[in-house]
């Protein structure tokens, strides 16, 4: 934590941490405490006066079926994004690990979607699934399927999941590949000598050994799906049709900036903060320790 050898006490270290601490207090702590405070207030419709109402905003939120729906929708969305992008990435990393000479070439061709902004990923998939022009819709049409995510909530959900997962495959691929490459080759060779085929080796040696990475990625993917996919939803569906793709982060934005329900939006922010804190604690306390290398 601290160097054994260090500099004499002076005012200098305080000056050094000042920029970061000022930014942290002004743009993190102060707004977060404001969110906490506002979540206990109710403002009248014109924003002229506000009344302290204790936990009423939270009670309203928990009694609100719409909020509960948004919650389970977000859980479904996160699960689907994490599951699909991680399983595709696992297959690709497993095969890329096999083709020794070409691994780097494939890595280059697979990792760059990480750099594409979520909203642009949304725009690309929106274009391909455009109900009148989209190239994929044209193919679906040939099979007799009529696609219109502007009317069909399930299709809209599918579209945002695809766009979100597409972008995340590269990240998961990179971490899975790094984990697989750090497995000692002697283990794999020993199994091969004992007669285990590629499939058997993958499930009995490689997959158990990369469990820590899998759990780590699971947490990262859930955080990604919870918070960073705002751009995709905002650009592709605006939470619609009929709230079918309204995830929690989108609802905070929508209720606060568009609906101007400050107390309700602040209460939702506080709940999101609690979720982030829980995820962060899990990430730091359990993931690296609990998953043992076998």
């Amino acid at each position: 934590m601290l160097k054994r050898v260090h500099f004499k006490p002076s005012i200098l270290p305080y000056l050094l941490v000042t920029p970061q601490i000022i930014i942290t207090v002004v743009f993190f702590f102060w707004p977060a405490s404001q969110a906490l405070y506002q979540s206990l207030l109710v403002e009248d419709a014109f924003g002229l006066s506000s009344k302290f109402v204790w936990l009423e905003n939270f009670e309203e939120l928990f009694a609100d079926e719409l909020y509960f729906d948004a919650f389970s929708r977000t859980a479904f969305f996160s699960f689907m994004v994490a599951a699909s992008s991680m399983s595709i990435a696992l297959v690709l990393a497993g095969t890329a690990d096999r083709v020794v000479k070409a691994t780097l070439a494939y890595r280059t061709m697979l990792i760059w979607p990480y750099a594409v902004a979520p909203v642009i990923a949304g725009a690309l998939w929106l274009f391909m699934f455009d109900p009148t022009l989209g190239i994929i819709v044209y193919v679906l049409d040939a099979f007799g399927y009529e696609w219109n995510h502007k009317l069909n909530g399930g299709e809209a959900m599918f579209l945002v999941i695809v766009a979100a997962a597409w972008k995340q495959v590269s990240y998961n691929f990179l971490f899975f590949l790094a984990a697989m490459q750090s497995i000692p080759k002697s283990l794999i060779e020993a199994a091969a000598i004992d007669g285990a085929g590629p499939g058997r080796r993958f499930w009995t040696i490689i997959f158990p050994l990369i469990t820590p990475t899998t759990f780590f990625l699971l947490v990262v993917n859930i955080v990604y799906a919870f918070f960073e996919t705002f751009g995709i939803v905002h650009a592709v569906t605006q939470g619609g049709p009929a709230k079918a793709t309204e995830i929690l982060v989108y609802k905070v934005f929508n209720d606060g900036f568009i609906g101007l329900d400050l107390g309700g939006s602040a209460a939702q922010s506080v709940i999101l903060m609690i979720i982030v804190i829980i995820i962060t604690v899990i990430q730091f306390r359990y993931i690296e320790k609990k998953v043992e290398y076998q």
Binding site: T24, L262, S269, M273
Partner: peptide, 22 residues
């Protein structure tokens, strides 16, 4: 610890009050 805690406050969860500060 003050710096550490910022990990738990992504911009998405404090958008309205941060906007007001700015």
């Amino acid at each position: 610890w003050m710096i550490f805690i910022t990990l738990m406050l992504p911009v998405e969860v404090r958008i309205l009050p941060t906007y007001e500060v700015v």
